[in-house]
Simulated scan of single mutants.
Amino acid sequence: MIASRFSLACSFGLALALPACGGKNRDHGQGGAGLDTTTGLETLGIINITHVPSTPAGTSFYVVQAAFSDHYESTSDVECTYREEAHCTIQACTDNRTAPFRAKPAGKLTIGGGLFGTPGIEVEPDSDHAYVDVGSIKPWEPGQMLIARGGGDEIPSFEVSVPAPGTFTLMAPAIPPEDALPISRSAPLPLQWSAEPLDRVVIITSSEKTSNANPLVTATCRFAASETSGGIPASVLAVLPPGPATFDAAVTNIGVSQVANRAVLFVATELAHAAGGGPAHASARVE
């Protein structure tokens, strides 16, 4: 059960916030490693917390993922490029690394605020200095402040906060309960959602890589709170390679704190509800 929950939230969280991309031609963009454009600082660490508000079984859970390193800029074997198209950002990352990503410990990670209570949840790094935690509680109400603290180690101690996001209901496209969601590369993908006053994000990420030389492509499209419908242009979808992908709709907030002249990002994500029940998350097939 924990593995399936983790993979569900990871497909969104990793695309949005964890350091899948390194090397040159990077900016903060949608939370990737590199330069944080809100502060102009290089990234020191990224904390991602994703809430899946309603699974098909009717449960709710959250996933925390975090990684820290002062070597983002020296990992030149991972190249990411970014291109803006309409209201979307297209990210393509090619991974030519011969060694794994070099994470560093930041001590005990504590996340509080929201509905976590006192003293909050505490997450210890694993043997690779990665932070992962899965919990079966509702972590927040919209607008509550979340606070992440690092106890300090090779990464200095820090504190960073972010307001908890709200959620909405995705009306279209319909999320298939079992089959893959078909996405055409030659036609726009229409979107429709309920009228909650929230900025929304839709992310489609390719998930089939025949070799490290083939880029992992993500299209991240943002929509204003005033919009109740929108679409992803065919020109954006045409960039995605044919084959398996994931589709996610969500609300996300990002907090930034300066630590040792670098930026620690705290990304809070709430997956949307699907009109037919469950989260607005689906396996997809780009055709």
Rank of each mutant, 00 (worst) to 15 (best):
L18P: 00
L14R: 01
P19K: 06
N25K: 06
H51S: 02
E73V: 06
L35Q: 08
H71M: 03
F68E: 06
V78E: 04
H51T: 01
T39G: 10
I49D: 02
I47Q: 06
L35Y: 12
G29Q: 11
Q65C: 12
G29E: 04
H51E: 12
S74K: 08
H71V: 03
H51F: 07
T55F: 03
G23Y: 08
I49T: 10
I47K: 02
L14M: 04
A20F: 12
I47Y: 04
T89C: 13
V78K: 10
T75A: 13
T94V: 14
Q65A: 15
D77A: 14
V78I: 14
G23A: 06
C93R: 02
Q30H: 07
C88Y: 10
Q65V: 10
E84M: 12
F68V: 07
G58I: 04
Y72W: 11
C80G: 11
S54V: 01
V64G: 13
T50I: 11
E73W: 04
P19Q: 11
A15W: 00
Q91S: 13
S74L: 08
G23C: 07
D95E: 06
I46C: 04
I47P: 03
D36I: 04
A20E: 12
T43L: 05
C88T: 15
T81K: 09
T75N: 08
K24A: 10
A67F: 11
T55C: 00
G34I: 06
T43R: 05
T94Q: 11
G34H: 05
L35A: 03
L14T: 05
A33M: 06
V64I: 15
F68C: 09
F68G: 10
A17G: 15
T59R: 09
D70F: 04
S60M: 00
T37C: 13
T55S: 11
E84T: 07
D77F: 03
S69P: 04
R26S: 08
G40I: 09
I47W: 05
A86L: 13
G29V: 09
R26D: 01
V64T: 15
I46W: 01
G22W: 00
I90G: 08
A15E: 05
C21P: 00
R83E: 12
G31K: 02
C21H: 07
S74N: 05
F68Q: 08
L16C: 01
K24Y: 09
G22K: 00
Y82I: 03
A20Q: 11
L18S: 08
A20N: 09
S54C: 02
K24T: 12
H71P: 00
K24E: 12
S60G: 00
F68W: 09
N25R: 09
L16V: 01
R26Y: 05
L14K: 00
Y62M: 08
V52S: 01
H28N: 12
A92V: 00
A17Y: 03
S74M: 05
G23V: 03
V63M: 13
T37Q: 13
S69Q: 05
V63C: 13
S69Y: 06
L16M: 03
V64S: 11
G22I: 00
Q65L: 15
Q91M: 09
P56E: 07
G45Y: 01
R26M: 09
H71I: 06
H51D: 04
R83M: 11
E84S: 08
G34T: 04
N48R: 10
G34P: 01
E42N: 14
A15N: 06
C88M: 11
T38Q: 14
T43V: 10
D77H: 08
P53L: 02
I47A: 03
